[in-house]
Amino acid sequence: MVAQHDEHRPWWRRRRASADAPAAGPEPSDDELHANVTRLLARELGVAEPAADHPRPVTPARIAAWMADNHFSYFVDNDGDLGGLWRGRLFYFFLFGESAEILQIRGQWHREIAIERLEEVLDLCNEWNADRIWPKAYVRVRDNGRVHVVSEVATDLEHGATDAQLSQLLFCGLSTGSMFFDAIDEKYPDPAGSVP
């Protein structure tokens, strides 16, 4: 068996000095040990880069700024809720919770379905929800008996979000909602409001 010199081994496999070996010098101080460990970790793992952006609370103003930065049209309704159109579908952006920490992106399909199709639309929503994480799909029956199909992505942002995280969440809510509505469009070409 060929002996391997310690300097060619990874640091974690190097032999420890035996208790019989003479001491190499005075014991290092805590500060010196800390500096040695920091250098060792930097060499082995790389230097950590400081974050360019820190998580901040999500506000309607940040969502509106994101919409403006991405050249999306948006509005604020009479109730103060922020909404916009995405690929012809209406989406709202809500903040719920005691500290407005839960972001919800809720979309509504641009057409209504007849109440007689309720069971089959519920089955479609259940299939979607069983196969995918986003968006949550469900229906609402209005007072006039028409069925509205809804998508929803909700995220708890108790510790805030960076601009990049917020952008990803907003795109996720809009794009997955649109994918769901595209699937509904394929299943129910116009006129979807007619009785089967």
Rank of each mutant, 00 (worst) to 15 (best):
A61N: 13
K187W: 09
P135E: 03
L33W: 08
R43P: 02
P10M: 07
V141C: 10
V37Y: 08
E186F: 06
F93W: 10
L174A: 07
F91G: 02
P10A: 08
G88K: 02
R43L: 15
H54A: 12
V58L: 07
D77N: 15
P60R: 14
G160H: 06
R9F: 03
L95R: 04
L122A: 06
L169M: 10
R9L: 15
W134F: 15
G97W: 08
D6C: 11
H110Q: 04
K136G: 00
W11S: 14
E98Y: 02
Q168N: 07
F94E: 05
I115G: 05
L95E: 06
V147L: 08
D81L: 11
D6F: 00
A161G: 03
F180M: 14
L170R: 00
G160S: 05
E101M: 01
E49C: 04
S18K: 13
V121E: 00
A65H: 07
L40R: 15
L169A: 04
A52I: 04
W11L: 14
W128L: 03
Q168D: 07
K136L: 02
A24V: 12
S73H: 13
R117V: 04
I105R: 00
R111K: 08
W86R: 14
E101I: 01
Q104D: 05
H148I: 09
V2G: 13
W134Q: 06
E98S: 04
I105C: 11
E158T: 15
W12S: 08
F181Y: 10
N144Y: 02
P55F: 03
V150D: 00
Q104L: 02
V37C: 05
P135C: 03
F72E: 14
V37G: 02
G97A: 05
C125H: 01
Q165G: 03
D30E: 09
R146F: 06
G80H: 11
V149W: 00
L82W: 11
W128I: 00
S175C: 12
I113W: 01
H159E: 11
A21C: 11
V147A: 03
D77H: 06
P60A: 14
R13P: 01
F94W: 07
L157N: 01
G88S: 06
P10I: 12
G145A: 10
F75D: 12
P57W: 09
S73T: 13
H110L: 04
S73W: 13
Y188C: 06
L124E: 07
R132Q: 14
A192I: 06
V195S: 14
S29E: 13
A154M: 03
D20V: 14
R117L: 14
G97R: 05
R39F: 08
D190S: 13
I102Q: 05
E186G: 08
G177A: 11
L124V: 04
T176Q: 13
V2W: 10
L122C: 09
D77P: 07
P196C: 09
E116T: 15
I184E: 00
T162Y: 01
Y92D: 04
T59F: 09
A23R: 13
L124K: 11
F171Q: 09
H110A: 07
V149R: 01
G83L: 10
E7H: 11
L166D: 01
